[in-house]
Design a protein around this nucleic acid. Structure first.
Lengths: 187, 187
DNA sequence: TATATACTATACAGTTCTGTATATTTTAAT
DNA sequence: ATTAAAATATACAGAACTGTATAGTATATA
């Protein structure tokens, strides 16, 4: 990938989170990125396309990071799902955390026909399915049910953290997750 | 309250939810409400003020509805918190449900200095404190901890429902809430 | 050194948005 | 019926935003 394209994606990701997507103009993006609109529109056909690529890259980066953490530190499937929220906590509490793209994007583009909303919805579903796979591999009976519940705690905690940085919500989400996971493993 | 002002608030609430706040212009609001910009700016000094009033009215209406449900059907404090999510489910599954204002607004206005963000954050906190009061009256030890967890399930489920109408997330949020509440009552 | 490519600089067309100015019409109260 | 208040109709100033057109500059490759 071209360094300039990457720089535009990095800057856009940050600005979309800190100022909002609709409130961030392409002029601001190129000014901060140190380039021009002509270059931006060379790599992205429209602002919508830029938003979609930002969402995809953000989710890919997060998933890669999470996969690495899970595979590096846990071998047994049951361990993985039990440590899942530890890594979520680590990620949310890291200074680089600025929020979750698909949560914010779905709020700014509420129409279910909108491509940005559809991608957001897809990413949320895929993340839930990823948790479901962890639960399934840990031989949990209602794996999908637990996955949905954990995803609610995840999205709720992220939402709380986006609303007030340093809320500490993730700590309690983790505790709740442990109760639900332990109950699901036994049951 | 003037019928026109009320009509503007009703229409704005709907449009903010279905099209997004920043994406909804005042021209659209007055056109749908069947009035003019002059009238809108008579009752609201700015679009920001309109947004703030929409948020306040939405939360007031919801809280009133919820209080009535709780006080009408339950006398014992323990019963109240146990039925809390039943009413949340009823509300989310009702056809009139279009989302939660403070969740969407905080996403569209991420800057913590912004008055709209601040009101959203305040409403989220107050709702959590309301749950905390229910938990406290039910003699639950870590009432605030439980309240935070239930609020995460609430916001997560609402988020999921805003992302995909008819997701069924609230059903599983309710199940998780029951587990957490039962555990907190015993412990 | 010649040439293609990448990038910059800048202006601008066209649209949309907030908020106001101005004049007119409707409604309600005396 | 007269008068004050409420609401409408409409135009517009000024700003912001997306996307493009055009011309010039840097960079790398041959």
């Amino acid at each position: 990938m071209s360094p300039l394209k990457d720089q535009i994606l990095v800057v856009a990701t940050d600005l979309f989170h800190t100022r909002g997507i609709n409130s961030t103009g392409v002029d601001t993006i190129v000014a901060v990125a140190g380039t021009t609109k002509m270059t931006l529109y060379k790599y992205f056909n429209s602002k919508e396309e830029l938003i979609l690529e930002v969402l995809q890259k953000s989710q890919q980066d997060f998933q890669s990071w999470l996969n690495e953490k899970l595979n590096l530190n846990s071998k047994k499937p049951a361990e993985k799902i039990q440590r899942f929220f530890d890594y979520i906590e680590e990620w949310v509490n890291s200074p680089e955390f600025i929020g979750v793209g698909f949560i914010k994007a779905s709020a700014e583009f509420p129409n279910e026909e909108n491509p940005i909303h559809q991608l957001s919805s897809q990413q949320s579903r895929e993340f839930r399915q990823f948790i479901g796979k962890l639960a399934n591999e840990a031989s949990i009976k209602d794996a999908d049910g637990l996955a949905l519940q954990l995803s609610l705690l995840f999205e709720g905690a992220v939402q709380a953290e986006q609303m007030k940085r340093g809320s500490g919500a993730i700590k309690y989400a983790k505790k709740a997750a442990k109760i639900l996971i332990d109950g699901a493993i036994k049951g």
